[in-house]
Simulated scan of single mutants.
Amino acid sequence: MSAKTVLPAVAMTAVSMVLTLAVVVMWLGTAVPWPVAVVVGLGIDGGWLATLAYERRLAAQGDHDRTVTAVGWSFGAVATGVLVAHALTAEDSAGAWLAVAWLPIAAKALWLIHSMWERTALTPNALDAIRGIQQEARDEAAVARARLRAEAATEETRLTAVTAAGARVAHVQAKTAQTLSSAWSTLEAARKGEETGRALTSVTSPVTPGVTARWELPVWGPSEPTGAPALEASPALTDDVLDVLVDGIRHSQTPPLSYREMAARFRTAGHSASEVRLRAAWKRVVA
C-alpha cells in the first residue's frame, strides 16, 4: 500500500539529486577543478539523503525531531537555490533550467506526504470494519428515511379521508338543518294562519266554549322532569274544592290559561280528578 506514495518520492529524489549534481559540476566546473565541483554536489545530495534517512528512521519508531526536519528542508532549499541561481545566470535555455529548479522542494514535499500516509495507514481488516460500519449506518439511515416517508404518506391519506368525511357530515347536517328550517317555517305559517285559527275554534268550541283555541309548536330539546307520580292515592276532591283549584290555576297568569294548559298544570301539581269532573268544573268556572 505504501508503494503508492513512496515510489513517486523516490523517483523525484533521484531526479533531483542527479540534476543538482549535474548543475553544480557545470556551474562550478569552470571556476574550480571538476573534482571539487563533484564533491560540492555530492555534499549537497549527501546531506539531503542523510537527513531524509534519519527522518525515516524516526518515523518508523513513531517519533519526530524538528531539528532534523529543519536541516532536511535546509538542504532542499540549498539545492533549489543552486538550481535557481544557475538558471538565472545561464546564457542558454534559462527558462528550461528554471522550470526544473523546483524538483528538490517537490521531492521533499512528496516524502512529507508519504510520512502522513504511513501515520494514517490502516490494516485491511480495519478498513473492512470501517466500510462495514459506514454501510450499516447508510442502511439504517435509508430505512429510517423510508419509514418516515411511509408514515408521512399514511398520515396524509388519513387526514385527507377524515377531512372528506367531515365535509360530507357537515354537508348532510347543513342540508338537514335547511330541511328542518323549511318545515318549521311551514308549521309556523300554518299555526299563525287565519284559517288554522278558525278550524281550531270550530273544533274546540263545543268542548270548551269561550276559550280561544291555540296551537303550540312542539319544543325540541331537553325538557325538565315533571316529577315522580304520587304513590299514595290522594283523597277525592269535592266539587267546591275542585272549582277553586281550577279557577286558581286558570288565572295563574295573564291571559288565562286554556283548558289543556290548566289540565296539564292541575295534574302536574299532583291533584287527581277524572276528566269528566275536571271538564265540568272548567265549565262552571268559565260560565
Rank of each mutant, 00 (worst) to 15 (best):
T186G: 13
M116N: 07
E194A: 12
E224W: 06
M116K: 05
P256L: 08
R56L: 14
G166I: 02
A150G: 04
S234G: 08
V162L: 15
R198V: 04
P104K: 03
A213C: 02
K4Q: 14
A141M: 09
W102Y: 06
V39K: 06
Q61L: 15
R191D: 04
P255D: 05
A199T: 08
H171F: 09
E195N: 09
T30V: 10
A146Q: 13
T176Q: 15
I133C: 07
E261Y: 04
Q173G: 00
I113A: 15
A190N: 06
H271I: 02
A177K: 07
L257P: 04
V169M: 01
T157F: 04
P209T: 00
Q178K: 14
P256S: 11
W282Q: 02
G248T: 14
T80D: 02
R145T: 12
G270T: 03
M1K: 07
R131E: 12
W215H: 06
E155K: 08
T208K: 00
V246Y: 03
P206W: 00
D65I: 05
W111C: 05
D243L: 06
L242T: 06
W282F: 13
A96K: 07
A165L: 10
V39T: 14
T254M: 07
K108E: 13
V68Q: 07
Q178I: 01
G221P: 05
A87V: 02
R214H: 10
L19M: 14
G95Q: 11
G197W: 03
V6Y: 13
N125L: 09
R145G: 10
R265K: 07
G81F: 02
D240Q: 12
V241K: 04
A153I: 08
A50F: 09
V39S: 13
L242N: 02
D247F: 08
G210K: 01
A106Y: 11
G76N: 00
G197I: 01
H86G: 11
A37K: 03
A228W: 08
Y54W: 14
G248Y: 06
S74L: 14
A31T: 06
V219Q: 12
E156N: 09
V10D: 07
I249N: 01
S234T: 09
E156I: 08
T163M: 10
L110A: 11
V211A: 08
A37N: 02
T268V: 09
V100E: 03
A213M: 01
V143K: 12
S182G: 08
W282Y: 05
M12F: 10
A164F: 00
G210C: 08
A233R: 11
L28P: 07
V143R: 13
T208W: 09
W73N: 06
S115V: 04
T268F: 12
R265T: 04
M12S: 15
V23A: 15
W117D: 08
T163C: 01
H114C: 02
S223W: 09
A189F: 04
T208F: 12
V25G: 04
H86P: 00
G62V: 05
L19K: 10
R214L: 11
R265P: 00
A144C: 03
D92Q: 11
Q134I: 05
W97G: 05
